[in-house]
Computed example of a mutant assay.
Amino acid sequence: MIDPQSIDLADFLITWYGAPSRDEKPLPAPCDWLPEPLRNWHTLAARWDLRLTSTTTLVSPENLHVADDGMAIFMVDATGDWRWCFDPAEPDLVFEAERYEPWERSSETLSELLVHNAVREVVYGAPAGKRAVAASDEVLSEVLATMDEISFGPWRWPTPGFRTFMGSMTVAEAIRSSSSSGWDVDVVAPTLGRLSHLDRLSEAHWRTRGQ
């Protein structure tokens, strides 16, 4: 398995989004209270002109604040219904919950969760991808033959059970299909040509995006 902490976020983002368009610029002094992993993420992400997330939104550092319950919400899903927060007294711990539900401790530390989110966002934002629904165990095994699973902690959002894999210039996400005994699997790459080998898997029916 791949240790999430072994993934260099700067290298990962360059691989998937190209070279950054600006030099690193420190966050303003009023943001010094934020946990270091979160400061590092915002400093890094600000180097690109394009948005690096689509299914989640990282609250801008200037808008982060501690709510009445003592928690600081730093990330929300695209609808704003699922939220992630930290306690400034224990900033490496992450808590999450659907809106109006009580906070529950996340399975990951803040630094692990930020890496997890960056990798997962690539599945939805990469230039090229293929998706198969209800793929068999055999097909999934062939798809993942050149990849290793990343040992991310389990997420409750959006649906529990997702597993993430990474290879050379590829990322895949797989979950048990709700409609059959097979797997729903997404595989992405910077270019569609890197996924051409998947078309040889005759049992898989792929939906393709990108060029």
Score class of each variant (00 low, 15 high):
residue 200 R to C: 04
residue 176 R to M: 08
residue 203 E to K: 14
residue 188 V to A: 02
residue 179 S to R: 13
residue 200 R to Y: 10
residue 159 T to L: 06
residue 191 T to L: 07
residue 202 S to D: 10
residue 192 L to R: 10
residue 178 S to N: 08
residue 193 G to N: 13
residue 167 G to I: 10
residue 200 R to P: 00
residue 171 V to L: 07
residue 168 S to M: 12
residue 158 P to T: 13
residue 198 L to G: 03
residue 198 L to K: 03
residue 191 T to S: 11
residue 161 G to I: 09
residue 171 V to T: 07
residue 180 S to W: 11
residue 179 S to F: 12
residue 162 F to Y: 15
residue 189 A to N: 04
residue 183 W to L: 03
residue 179 S to I: 11
residue 176 R to S: 10
residue 177 S to T: 09
residue 185 V to S: 00
residue 197 H to W: 13
residue 205 H to P: 00
residue 189 A to M: 05
residue 177 S to G: 03
residue 180 S to Y: 12
residue 201 L to I: 15
residue 176 R to V: 10
residue 176 R to A: 12
residue 173 E to Y: 00
residue 184 D to E: 05
residue 203 E to C: 06
residue 161 G to C: 11
residue 199 D to M: 05
residue 182 G to E: 06
residue 197 H to A: 14
residue 191 T to R: 12
residue 173 E to G: 06
residue 193 G to M: 06
residue 165 F to Y: 15
residue 178 S to F: 05
residue 169 M to Q: 10
residue 202 S to T: 14
residue 194 R to L: 12
residue 193 G to E: 11
residue 200 R to M: 10
residue 192 L to E: 06
residue 199 D to P: 01
residue 181 S to I: 06
residue 166 M to W: 04
residue 177 S to M: 07
residue 163 R to F: 02
residue 188 V to Q: 02
residue 183 W to F: 09
residue 162 F to K: 06
residue 170 T to G: 01
residue 181 S to N: 12
residue 181 S to T: 13
residue 203 E to L: 13
residue 174 A to V: 07
residue 201 L to M: 10
residue 184 D to V: 09
residue 171 V to I: 15
residue 163 R to A: 03
residue 180 S to D: 14
residue 181 S to W: 02
residue 192 L to W: 02
residue 163 R to G: 00
residue 171 V to F: 06
residue 171 V to G: 03
residue 194 R to K: 09
residue 181 S to H: 10
residue 171 V to M: 02
residue 159 T to R: 11
residue 181 S to D: 15
residue 192 L to N: 05
residue 176 R to I: 07
residue 199 D to Y: 04
residue 203 E to M: 12
residue 168 S to R: 15
residue 198 L to W: 06
residue 198 L to A: 04
residue 179 S to T: 15
residue 176 R to Y: 01
residue 173 E to L: 10
residue 204 A to P: 04
residue 181 S to E: 14
residue 157 W to P: 00
residue 204 A to V: 07
residue 158 P to H: 12
residue 166 M to I: 14
residue 175 I to Q: 01
residue 173 E to T: 13
residue 158 P to R: 11
residue 202 S to H: 13
residue 159 T to Y: 04
residue 181 S to F: 11
residue 175 I to F: 02
residue 159 T to A: 03
residue 168 S to T: 15
residue 189 A to W: 09
residue 157 W to I: 02
residue 202 S to L: 12
residue 177 S to N: 14
residue 190 P to F: 04
residue 191 T to A: 10
residue 173 E to M: 15
residue 205 H to T: 14
residue 177 S to R: 07
residue 162 F to R: 10
residue 190 P to D: 05
residue 180 S to G: 08
residue 189 A to F: 05
residue 189 A to D: 02
residue 157 W to G: 00
residue 203 E to P: 01
residue 190 P to R: 11
residue 196 S to L: 11
residue 187 V to T: 07
residue 164 T to K: 00
residue 166 M to H: 01
residue 174 A to Y: 06
residue 179 S to V: 14
residue 158 P to I: 11
residue 182 G to Q: 04
residue 199 D to S: 13
residue 189 A to Y: 03
residue 191 T to E: 13
residue 184 D to A: 04
residue 194 R to A: 05
residue 183 W to Q: 01
residue 186 D to M: 11
residue 172 A to I: 10
residue 191 T to V: 14
